[in-house]
């Protein structure tokens, strides 16, 4: 990590995400997370620079836009574009991935609470989609269940977000990616996917219908694709 930031950081808190290193820190007295997108040695330098910059920018824009439409995302405290560093609010609580798995022990109640989680999540996604924002990386690692309360769900990691010319197909792909990530990660959780889609449709019926139609077409494409070789 860059020396300029060393005094801020708790060195034992390093987590290596997919493309960033994350540290716990305190920013102006508040618990914070420092996220540094480090350069990837495996990829061409030019490509690497372009991607790191684009993603930092996408993340800031995505978080801002989500917050504008009332979707919870960590507050941004500080940005260093030269070093691809972002300092943001630390959201206390498990990732949705860990939270879902921790629910497994409580047989009866689990179903209801997970359905609640799904509906909240579906609603949050519908809201950002309605504003023309695509998250781009909806996996259960990229959401935090604040204090373990599914009603207090925060979306994070907007590095692949995009907004602007957004069509139903893009929204459908956003949901498709999430659906597949849940199927792969969490066994026997079809009810969560159902709840997500219900929550999604409940926010805006017109968007809901258009995107569900796309989602069905995208799924079909996946299943019908030729797989030669």
């Amino acid at each position: 990590m860059n020396t300029a930031y060393n005094s801020l950081l708790d060195p034992d808190s390093l987590r290596q995400g997919a493309e960033a290193k994350l540290y716990d820190c305190v920013y102006l007295g508040k618990p914070a997370i420092l996220k540094e997108r480090f350069s990837k040695k495996y990829r061409h330098e030019e490509l690497d620079k372009r991607l790191n910059f684009a993603r930092l920018r996408a993340e800031i824009r995505g978080i801002n836009k989500a917050q504008q439409v009332g979707v919870k995302a960590p507050a941004i405290y500080f940005v260093d574009t030269n070093r691809h560093i972002l300092i943001m609010e630390r959201v206390e609580g498990p990732t949705a991935k860990d939270w879902i798995e921790s629910q497994r022990q409580r047989a009866e109640e689990e179903f209801k609470v997970q359905a609640k989680f799904g509906e909240v999540l579906g609603g949050e996604i519908a809201k950002i989609h309605l504003s023309g924002l695509i998250h781009g990386d909806l996996t259960t690692s990229n959401m935090i269940v604040k204090n373990g309360d599914p009603g207090n769900l925060h979306l994070i990691d907007f590095g692949l977000a995009n907004s602007g010319k957004v069509i139903a197909e893009d929204k459908g792909v956003d949901l498709y990616v999430l659906e597949r990530a849940i199927q792969a990660t969490h066994i026997n959780c079809e009810h969560i996917v159902d709840a997500i889609l219900n929550g999604y449709k409940s926010v805006n019926a017109k968007q809901g219908e258009a995107v569900m139609a796309r989602l069905i077409a995208i799924r079909l494409r996946g299943r019908k694709r030729d797989m030669v070789g």
């Binding site: 792969a184 990660t185 694709r225 797989m227």
Partner: peptide, 29 residues
């Protein structure tokens, strides 16, 4: 990764689960 397939797979609970894949063309194709 091959002519017809592009998948990122991980095993759990009696299945090779597909975490990532191409949403259109295969890489080899």
């Amino acid at each position: 990764v091959s002519g017809g397939n592009t998948q990122v797979i991980s095993y759990s609970a009696q299945k090779y689960r597909i975490f990532g894949e191409t949403i259109d063309l295969a890489v080899g194709n």
